[in-house]
C-alpha cells in the first residue's frame, strides 16, 4: 500500500512523514512524531482526549486523516507551554482539576481554544464547550473552576498589558 508524504507544521516546527492513507492525524502524532501527549480514549470523536487545533480550529485528531493535515498548522498539548506554563496548565494543577490526568491534555487544548474565542465565559458556556471532553474522575467541578480562574487571570494580564 503506497504511503502519502505529508508536510505540516506542528507546534511551530516543520515536520514531514509518510502516512498510510488510512492513518489518522492522531496516529501520526503519536507514532510518527512521538507526540504522545495527545491521547486516544475512543477513536470515534466521543471523548475529546485527542483534541488538537488545525489551522486554529479545535478538532478531534482521531477524526481526521493524517493525509488531510498536509500543509496545515497543528497545535498539540506539547506546544501549549512556552517558557512558562500556560495559565490554564498552572490553574489545573493548583485547583486539583485532574486526577488520573488522561483527559487533561485534550481538555486543556479545548479550554485554550474556548478562551481565545470567549475570554469571559459563563460556567454554562464552559460546560457546553467542553461537553465533548469526557472526564471520568473529577465530576468536572474543579475543571470548570480552574478554567474560570485561568480566564480571570488572563483577562487581568490582558488589561495589565493594554
Amino acid at each position: 500500500m503506497s504511503k502519502i508524504h505529508v508536510t505540516a507544521t506542528v507546534n511551530g516546527d516543520p515536520v514531514e512523514f509518510l502516512a498510510d492513507p488510512r492513518e489518522t492525524l492522531l496516529d501520526a502524532l503519536r507514532n510518527h512524531l512521538d507526540l504522545t501527549g495527545t491521547k486516544e480514549g475512543c477513536g470515534t470523536g466521543d471523548c475529546g482526549a485527542c483534541s488538537v487545533t488545525v489551522d486554529g480550529t479545535l478538532v478531534c485528531s482521531c477524526l481526521m486523516l493524517a493525509a488531510e493535515a498536509n500543509g496545515k498548522r497543528v497545535e498539540t498539548i506539547e506546544g501549549m507551554a512556552k517558557e512558562e506554563l500556560h495559565p490554564l496548565q498552572r490553574k489545573f494543577i493548583e485547583h486539583a482539576a485532574l486526577q488520573c490526568g488522561f483527559c487533561t491534555p485534550g481538555i486543556l487544548v479545548a479550554a485554550k481554544a474556548l478562551l481565545e474565542r470567549n475570554p469571559d465565559p459563563t460556567d454554562t458556556e464552559i460546560r457546553y464547550w467542553l461537553a465533548g471532553n469526557l472526564c471520568r474522575c473529577t465530576g468536572y467541578d474543579k475543571i470548570v473552576r480552574a478554567v474560570q480562574d485561568a480566564a480571570a487571570e488572563m483577562r487581568q494580564d490582558h488589561r495589565g498589558a493594554a
Binding site: 503519536r30 507526540l35 504522545t36 501527549g37 495527545t38 491521547k39 486516544e40 498539540t76 498539548i77 506539547e78 501549549m80 507551554a81 506554563l85 496548565q89 498552572r90 489545573f92 494543577i93 493548583e94 486539583a96 485532574l98 490526568g101 488522561f102 487533561t104 491534555p105 486543556l108
Partner: peptide, 19 residues
C-alpha cells in the same frame, strides 16, 4: 499543595499505557 506529578500531566509528558 501542588501534586508532584501535576506538571507532567498538564504538559503531555506523563507516560500512560499506550505511550
Amino acid at each position: 499543595p501542588n501534586r508532584p506529578d501535576g506538571l507532567d500531566k498538564v504538559t503531555g509528558r506523563a507516560r500512560y499505557g499506550a505511550d
